[in-house]
Write a protein that binds this DNA or RNA. Structure first.
Length: 390
RNA sequence: GUGAUCGUAGCUCAGUUUGGUUAGAGCGCCUGGUUGUGGUCCAGGAGGUCGCGGGUUCAAAUCCCGUCGGUCACCCCA
C-alpha cells in the first residue's frame, strides 16, 4: 500500500464544498474590490525566502521544502505568499501601486498536528507601491469584512512594532532584560535569547510568564510618527465600529514586518489569519524601494470553523434501457439542465437509492417516461417544463 | 527535531492481554427476487499483502526490532 505523503491532505466530501465555496467567495469579493488575482509559481528560488522571512527564523532554517532541480537550481516549495507577490510586483509593476490577491498551496516541513499541515492553502491580499495609513486601513477593513461574514465573532488583534530602527533598539533593551533574568526563563526561551529575542514574548510557557509580564514594553520604544499613525488607524477602525484588541506581544513570525502587525482570532482563539506592513521587504530583497501591506488567511483553519454550504443537486436520471436514457440525457443537455445519472445501467432499486442519497428533488424515470418529485412523492408524466420552471 | 498514542474489508470497529483450524461483525456495495405506499424486505455474493520490512517460533493480526503513515502535544506557526 502506497501511503500519502506525510502532512498532506485530500480535500474531499464536505471539505470540497467548503473549499470551492471559499474560493468563489474570495475571488468574487476581492476582485470586485479592486484586488487583481495573481497566481505566482509554487516553485521559487530559495533565496527569495531566506532573505525575506529572515535567516534565523525557523521557517527558513528548518521548515522549507528544498530541492535541487536537474539544472542545479536551489528551489523551494513556497512557504508563504507575500515574498512571491513582491517579486512579481518588482518584475512587472515596479514604480506603480497595485492591489493583489492570491490563493493557493503553501508548504512547510514540520510535524503535522491540529491546524497544521505540510501542505496547506492560504488566501491573501497585498497592496504594494506608494502607500499610507489609508492603505493599512483598507487591508484591515476589507479582510475584516470578509472573515466576519464567514466566522462571526472573529476578533482583530493589533499592534505596532515601530520602525526597523525602533525594533533594533527595543530588541537590544529586551535582550539585556532577559539576560538579567536568565535564571527565570524556560529552556526553550533561552534558546531564542540571542537570535530570536522578540519571540520570547510569544511564549506560553508558565515559567516565562512572570518575566514576560515585567518586560519592557515595545510601546515605550516606538517613534512618535509610528505611534501617531497607529493611533490614527485605531481611530479610523473605531469610527466604523471595527472592534480590536491591542496586543503588545504580537510580533508575528516573519522578520520583514514593521509598524503594523495584526491577527484574526476565532472565538475559540485559533489564529486564522494575519498580516502587517512591510516597508523594507523590497530593500531586503534588493528588488527596489517600495512599500507594502498585506494579510493572509489559513484556509484549512477557516474550513474548520464554517458549515458546509448545501449542495444543490436537483435532478436524477434513472434508467435501465440504454437508448432511452441516452435520449433523455441528450434532451437535458440541450436544455442546459444539471442532473445526476447512474454510472452504469445498474439495478433500478440501486438507482433509486442513489437518487435518495444525493438528495435530489426530481427523479426522471426513463423506463416509464415519468418524473417524480421526491419531496411530495408525486409522480406524473414526464414534462421538461417541470424542470425549467425551477 | 522531540514525545505520547494508533494502523485488521470501501467505512466504523471486534479479535492482540494469555501466539494455535479456511481472520469476524455492522454499515455500504453487487446479483436474483419482492416492493408502485418505488428508498422496504428476503435470499445469495464479492471484497482483507491484518500499513510495510525483518526477527523469534513447529506456528505470528497477536511477541520483539526497524520503518512508513494517522491523531495529538512540544518546538514553531497559518
Amino acid at each position: 500500500m502506497i501511503e500519502q505523503v506525510k502532512g498532506t491532505k485530500n480535500i474531499s466530501g464536505e471539505d470540497s464544498l467548503k473549499f470551492l465555496y471559499l474560493k468563489d467567495l474570495f475571488h468574487s469579493n476581492f476582485s470586485q474590490n479592486g484586488y487583481n488575482y495573481v497566481q505566482t509559481p509554487i516553485l521559487e528560488y530559495k533565496n527569495l525566502f531566506n532573505k525575506s522571512i529572515g535567516e534565523s527564523s525557523e521557517i527558513v532554517t528548518k521548515q522549507m521544502y528544498e530541492l535541487i532541480d536537474k539544472g542545479g537550481r536551489e528551489l523551494v516549495l513556497r512557504p508563504e505568499g507575500t515574498a512571491s507577490i513582491v517579486r512579481y510586483h518588482s518584475e512587472f509593476n515596479k514604480d506603480t501601486t497595485n492591489k493583489y490577491s492570491y490563493f493557493g498551496p503553501m508548504f512547510r516541513y514540520e510535524n503535522p498536528q491540529k491546524n497544521r499541515y505540510r501542505e496547506f492553502n492560504q488566501a491573501g491580499l497585498e497592496i504594494i507601491g506608494l502607500i499610507d495609513i489609508f492603505t493599512d486601513f483598507q487591508i484591515i477593513n476589507d479582510s475584516f469584512n470578509f472573515i466576519q461574514k464567514l466566522i462571526p465573532g472573529t476578533q482583530l488583534k493589533i499592534n505596532t512594532i515601530g520602525s526597523i530602527k525602533d525594533r533594533e533598539n527595543y530588541i537590544k533593551v529586551l535582550h539585556n532584560y532577559f539576560l538579567d533574568n536568565k535564571s527565570d526563563l524556560s529552556p526553550e526561551s533561552l534558546e531564542k535569547l540571542d537570535n530570536n529575542t522578540l519571540r520570547i514574548l510569544d511564549s506560553n510557557n508558565d515559567i516565562d510568564s512572570g518575566v514576560i509580564n515585567n518586560a519592557p514594553n515595545i510601546s515605550d520604544y516606538i517613534n512618535t510618527e509610528s505611534k501617531n499613525n497607529f493611533d490614527s488607524l485605531l481611530k479610523l477602525l473605531s469610527s466604523i465600529n471595527i472592534g480590536y484588541k491591542i496586543d503588545n506581544s504580537l510580533v508575528r513570525g516573519l522578520d520583514y514586518y514593521n509598524d503594523l502587525t495584526f491577527e484574526f482570532h476565532t472565538p475559540d482563539n485559533i489564529v486564522i489569519g494575519g498580516g502587517g506592513r512591510y516597508d523594507n521587504l523590497s530593500n531586503i530583497l534588493s528588488l527596489g524601494n517600495f512599500k507594502g501591506v498585506g494579510v493572509a488567511f489559513g484556509l484549512e483553519r477557516i474550513m474548520d470553523n464554517i458549515n458546509a454550504p448545501v449542495s444543490e443537486k436537483k435532478c436524477y436520471l434513472l434508467g435501465s434501457n440504454i437508448e432511452n436514457i441516452v435520449k433523455y440525457s441528450k434532451l437535458l443537455d440541450d436544455h442546459n439542465i444539471h442532473y445526476c445519472k447512474p454510472s452504469r445501467l445498474s439495478k433500478e432499486n440501486s438507482q433509486f437509492k442513489e437518487a435518495n442519497n444525493l438528495n435530489v428533488t426530481y427523479l426522471i424515470n426513463t423506463n416509464e417516461d415519468t418524473i417524480k418529485n421526491l419531496l411530495t412523492k408525486e409522480t406524473m408524466d414526464f414534462d421538461i417544463r417541470v424542470l425549467n420552471e425551477n
